[in-house]
Nucleic acid binder design. Structure first.
Length: 359
DNA sequence: CACACGTGGAC
DNA sequence: TGTCCAAGTGT
């Protein structure tokens, strides 16, 4: 029986033993054989995976990670990529500021740091898109530094292990202290991934599998019977509903009129359909005068902080139409719906669903 | 500190 | 259908 307060080293050994038995396969991880041979994971791949995993599930990330690393195998390759290509490859993954910062960071590393990622928490933290979590993750996983990661999993595991009832986010500093006490000097990267794996597979938000948890004996919340209700969180605001109108203009040849959205703000840097800003009651703002047809059905989409209802209008793009500054005419051949953020892709899907056949 | 910032899966 | 949630960061 481990004593939580007297034997922190015992706890880290218990979870590392558990981790070594799991062998959860992910394309950015090194296998047990590589680890035994002292092979470190590629910092570029660790960085890329950690940025993709911010607020995003392993299942959603895996295919994106494979496509990115196949297309841009090294940080220099990514740094040399066109912005539009990277944004298109990121489309559908969400939180698009991550993709913009990813490129900024790649260019700093490639052009100012000789293609080498910094190996310390403090230096990593200075780079775009790398915050406290990601800096600690890269430093520990790629560079074997005993930094403490604090993500949603670690917060939940620590809150339960110590039966902490103070709500998030106020309890964050306390949870970080508790997590730091357990971080070992040996294999800190494996330890970090082990605690996150524990949170993802056993110490889950609902119905935690305490019976098979490597930390079931020292866990204060399991003993108190409070594990499923931890961590407490301050209540969140209700989501308002916004409305919008999008204008799908297609030429007789099948080319589409799209707009590159400004870098800042919602869906920043992504392609989208022309239309007014979304709000209470958006005013019609067609990109040109035409006999715009209302598709009738509406697009419904929920963002982090509001619901969206979109009307979809369609017209033929006039021959010789001159696109405005931020607009692009994308040829039928070059247009891929998967390059669009999901709300915009849903508008296209609505149009496509109304097409009877042929094309 | 509070808020903006996506998406899709689970229940 | 609605709510919660996932390996957070920037402002």
């Amino acid at each position: 029986m481990r004593d939580l307060n007297a034997d922190p080293g015992g706890l880290s050994r218990d979870i590392l033993d558990w981790y070594d038995r799991q062998a959860r396969d992910m394309p950015w991880r090194t296998g047990p054989a590589d680890r035994a041979a002292g092979v470190r994971p590629d910092p570029y791949r660790v960085w890329l995976s950690e940025v993709m995993l911010q607020q995003t599930t392993v299942a959603a990330v895996t295919d994106y990670f494979q496509r990115f690393t196949a297309r841009w195998p090294r940080v220099e390759d990514l740094a040399a990529a066109e912005d539009a290509d990277v944004m298109a490859e990121w489309a559908g993954l969400g939180y698009y500021a991550r993709a913009r910062n990813l490129l900024k960071c790649a260019r700093v590393v490639a052009q100012e740091l000789d293609g080498t990622f910094p190996d310390s928490y403090e230096a990593l933290l200075k780079l775009p898109g790398i915050g406290p979590y990601t800096a600690a993750a890269i430093a520990s996983i790629a560079f074997d530094r005993p930094e403490t990661v604090l993500d949603g999993n670690v917060e939940r595991v620590m809150a339960r292990l110590h039966d902490i009832h103070e709500p998030l986010p106020g309890s964050k500093p306390l949870l970080k202290d508790r997590a730091a006490e357990l971080t070992p000097e040996v294999r800190p990267g494996c330890y970090a991934q082990a605690v996150m794996d524990l949170g993802a597979t056993i110490c889950t938000p609902k119905s935690p599998a305490c019976g098979i948890c490597p930390w079931r004996e020292p866990c204060a919340a399991r003993i108190a019977g409070t594990a499923p209700e931890l961590p407490k969180k301050t209540p969140k605001k209700a989501k308002p509903t916004r409305h919008g109108i999008v204008y799908l203009a297609r030429s007789s040849a099948g080319d589409w009129l799209l707009e590159r959205r400004p870098d800042k703000g919602l869906l920043g840097g992504m392609l989208g359909w022309p239309g007014p800003e979304w709000g209470e009651s958006p005013q019609p703002a067609p990109p040109f005068d035409a006999d715009w047809q209302d598709l009738g059905a509406e697009v419904r989409h929920t963002f982090t902080h509001f619901h969206l209802i979109l009307r979809v209008m369609v017209a033929e793009l006039p021959e010789g139409f001159a696109p405005a500054e931020q607009q692009e005419i994308i040829t039928r051949h070059a247009f891929r719906p998967s390059d669009l953020p999901t709300a915009m892709r849903k508008a296209f899907d609505l149009w496509r669903g109304g097409q009877t056949g042929g094309d």
